[in-house]
Design a protein around this nucleic acid. Structure first.
Lengths: 197, 197
DNA sequence: TACAACAGAATGAACGTTCATTCAGTTCGT
DNA sequence: ACGAACTGAATGAACGTTCATTCTGTTGTA
């Protein structure tokens, strides 16, 4: 009768899922305030009114999508990571994970990048999203204690080792540049050189 | 109609100038699509209709402001720079200039950062703004020829040495972090370490 | 008087959100 | 087993508001 392609889980969440996907896609192409709810509804093949069954309003929609994507990002970033790894190896693992996320899950990564660089997100949600980075901060602290990593603020470490990946993803997405595995390896070296002692 | 070669520019241009300033300030706080023309007019102490004497429409307003700010940025970035300088010294000069711009002219820098990270700017204007970086690209090329700088794409060099500054400016602006001269010197070392051979 | 700069009200399109209604599926009395 | 009663997800037209842009009249100046 209905979509039997998946189990019962597909039924309850299907509309909401479609809305989340549509939101990510449209916000990427036009930005938050330039994408009307009507367009999101249309792309999700759902009536405008249905959005309000799952989300309080437009801001709540964005906030929920942001948290969801950020959570997926963190899961990806710390996959196979183990806090008992030596600092250099742990960082390498996390860095490559993040790079893989940004280059494979482009839609989600672009969405995060836009949320993090514009006033469309409210501060509480932004703070919420920041929490997920804890393991990386801990790793850095340990690296500093062991004299392997520069004694500078985590903001600085992030700015020079992680943030650049977002830029590369952006230019690649605009078609100005194509990133190969070799580029990624170079990028990793540059990232590590900037933060290592 | 504008650009009168007479000396009355201060008066003739005063409304336009006020509009440009107001646009920068409001777009920084709320983003492009969330700032109505009426608010821009109010902050500039001008009537909404008057905007259309100086700008074709909202998009044209943003484009013009973008180009103007980008031009100011470039002038700042290459102040006292001389292409005959040794590579390392030339890069240091430009890097410190850019850092100074981002930390002194916060409003303008934030505006650029937002334009460069969202779909609010159309591609032609973006290309136009990119041209101004030529001298830096030339410097990097020379550095690569002299085996001083890694053999990677300028995008990569930019991502790791310049782009991070924008991140630091952003967190400082959000009040999460305060940047001192010492931080800047550390940041410069990190930037240089990431791109040098 | 003539003309450009300007103000502010007016306009119409587009938006976020609501709500009366429909519809598919489940429950329950028989 | 069967259909009437019920449930809540889903719809989409409609509403009030906001916005970019235009229109009309006023002011200042030569």
């Amino acid at each position: 009768m209905r979509n039997d392609t998946k189990g019962k889980e597909a039924k309850a969440g299907s509309k909401r899922e479609a809305l989340v996907r549509a939101t990510i896609q449209l916000v990427n192409n036009s930005g938050f305030h330039a994408t009307p709810m009507s367009k999101i509804a249309k792309l999700a093949e759902v009536s405008p009114g249905t959005i309000y069954l799952y989300f309080e309003n437009k801001q709540d929609l964005i906030n929920q999508v942001y948290i969801e994507v950020k959570t997926a990002f963190s899961a990806f970033a710390f996959k196979d990571y183990d806090a008992s790894l030596p600092v250099a190896e742990g960082f390498r693992k996390i860095w490559y994970n993040i790079a893989a996320f940004k280059l494979q899950e482009v839609e989600e990564a672009m969405f995060l990048s836009q949320c993090d660089n514009t006033p469309m997100m409210d501060e509480p949600s932004r703070q919420e999203g920041l929490k997920h980075l804890r393991p990386l901060l801990d790793l850095w602290e340990r690296g500093q204690a062991e004299q392997l990593i520069r004694q500078v603020s985590p903001f600085m470490l992030y700015a020079f080792s992680i943030y650049p990946i977002a830029f590369l993803m952006n230019v690649q997405q605009r078609g100005l540049y194509t990133i190969t595995q070799e580029h990624i390896d170079h990028a990793y070296t540059m990232a590590w050189n900037s933060i290592k002692l």
